[in-house]
């Protein structure tokens, strides 16, 4: 029995670890489908996190009685707003001003990580608050509320119902994005923009509009990953750099999932599991970094195999990384 319990616990923790990755990779897939390689996603995830934390911080400090609904909605909305603004910076620079996508993305990551760590580390000092450290325990409690009957269902309940709502939200969003890309007119046109902007343009599709929407909505989804990490996974406690390289891991999962959000659910949980596997298998702690290296190595292998097999459906969007400019006659 002990082994089964351990496996269940591993899966549960893998899912929790995988959730921020799932938000991030889903957001990045949506963005990349429009041809924009947003390397600012790691930064946006920090911004999404800190924006939510700031919203929650002010709410928690403004009232003595925290109402659950508001505790959820206020950080959620402020996180979305923060990510949206960050995505707009990227969008404005690359789509309207046609700046190099790699450079813009990396600058945004520098900016975003800095912003997160700065406010995370200084919020208390700036606001002259009397709390000793940045801990949003009441807000976090709202985020960590599980279904009431989860504990009565044994292993089954533990596996499927023991999470805060954002775990489910991540899955729902991933499936929704998958559905939109595959089965709707908007998805078709977005994919056309990413594959061949000139063709899409010729067909009367507003290329820039699609790029903006995909980048902004994608960024907002990714930002939720940061929010989940702080308010649910870390129990509302901010620690600088705690989020680590998860943003880059999310970009790796995009490749691993060959640009399909539904596969990215699996990929995120798998990579999440690799992050914590060392707790469950009896290997020396020394091997931990090698295990954490595994996701990246696997990603590289996927990237290589995909490019060697040349199966067209699995390639990156054909216009990825390039800006579209219609030469006026």
């Amino acid at each position: 029995m002990a082994i089964i319990e351990q496996i269940v616990e591993l899966i549960v923790r893998a899912i929790m670890q995988g959730t921020p990755l799932l938000f991030g990779s889903t957001g990045e897939i949506l963005t990349e489908k429009s041809g924009n390689l947003n390397l600012g996603i790691p930064g946006i995830m920090y911004i999404g996190a800190i924006s939510g934390v700031i919203g929650g911080f002010f709410y928690q400090n403004s009232t003595s009685k925290v109402i659950t609904v508001l505790a959820i909605i206020i950080p959620l909305l402020s996180s979305l707003a923060g990510s949206l603004l960050a995505s707009l910076i990227y969008g404005f620079l690359t789509i309207t001003l046609r700046a190099n996508q790699n450079v813009t993305g990396l600058a945004l990551t520098t900016f975003g990580v800095g912003l997160g760590n700065f406010f995370g580390g200084s919020l208390i000092k700036i606001t002259n608050s009397d709390t000793p450290f940045l801990a949003l325990s009441k807000i976090s409690a709202a985020y960590r509320t599980t279904l009431p009957f989860a504990n009565n269902l044994g292993i089954f309940g533990q596996l499927f119902f023991s999470y805060g709502f954002m775990v489910y939200l991540a899955v729902v969003i991933a499936l929704a994005v998958s559905f939109i890309l595959k089965r709707t007119r908007i998805g078709l046109q977005l994919r056309a923009v990413g594959e061949s902007p000139a063709t899409a343009d010729a067909a009367g599709i507003n290329v820039n509009k699609y790029k903006y929407f995909a980048t902004c909505i994608g960024g907002m989804i990714a930002g939720l990953g940061g929010l989940y990490y702080i308010l649910d996974y870390s129990k509302g406690i901010w620690a600088n750099d705690a989020f680590g390289d998860r943003g880059w891991l999310a970009i790796a999962i995009v490749i691993f999932a060959i640009w399909r959000p539904n596969i990215s659910i699996l990929g995120s949980y798998l990579f999440g599991g690799l992050y914590i596997l060392f707790n469950y298998v009896s290997v020396s702690m020394n091997l931990l970094p090698l295990m954490q290296m595994l996701p990246y190595v696997v990603t590289i292998i996927v990237l290589v195999i995909v490019s060697m097999r040349k199966k067209r459906e699995n390639q990156p969007p054909a216009s990825l990384g390039t800006n579209y400019f219609r030469e006026e006659r």
């Binding site: 390289d245 880059w248 931990l288 970094p289 954490q292 990246y296 990603t299 590289i300 990237l303 490019s307």
Partner: peptide, 26 residues
């Protein structure tokens, strides 16, 4: 094979980082 170099080199960064972490442990 025209493998996307931006993504490939990006991933190589984290392989190197983890190798160093491994080195530290050992």
């Amino acid at each position: 094979w025209k493998t996307n170099e931006t993504l490939f080199t990006l991933m190589m960064n984290y392989v190197a980082i983890q190798l160093i972490k491994f080195f530290l442990k050992v």
